[in-house]
């Protein structure tokens, strides 16, 4: 069980390639917003900074606004640089 304030973020596509992993963990305050979590992601994993300008977070498979407050046990995914078709 991760300690409070540890969020796991799933990665896909170029972000996954750059991180060399399908997920990373980010330390943030438990009551953080998704906007704060994205900023913490860039600070704690600089290799992912390239993907963040157009990135959003999905929480439990739904895109959320920057002011959404995720729970550490939510499924959180970085949705960035999508390229279907």
């Amino acid at each position: 069980m991760p300690p409070p304030g540890t969020f796991t973020i799933l990665l896909f596509g170029p972000a996954q390639d750059r991180a060399g992993s399908g997920q990373v963990t980010v330390q943030a305050r438990v009551e953080c917003t998704c906007g704060e979590l994205l900023r913490a992601l860039g600070e704690q994993h600089p290799a992912l900074a390239f993907a963040l300008p157009a990135a959003r977070l999905a929480v439990n498979h739904a895109l959320v606004a920057p002011d959404h407050r995720p729970r550490p046990d939510d499924e959180i995914a970085l949705i960035a640089l999508v390229d279907g078709g």
Binding site: G13, A58, A77, V82, D83
Partner: peptide
Amino acid sequence: FIDRMKREVPIWKR
């Protein structure tokens, strides 16, 4: 549809 899919839908290609 295609323009929005390429911007919004979580699909990636290598």
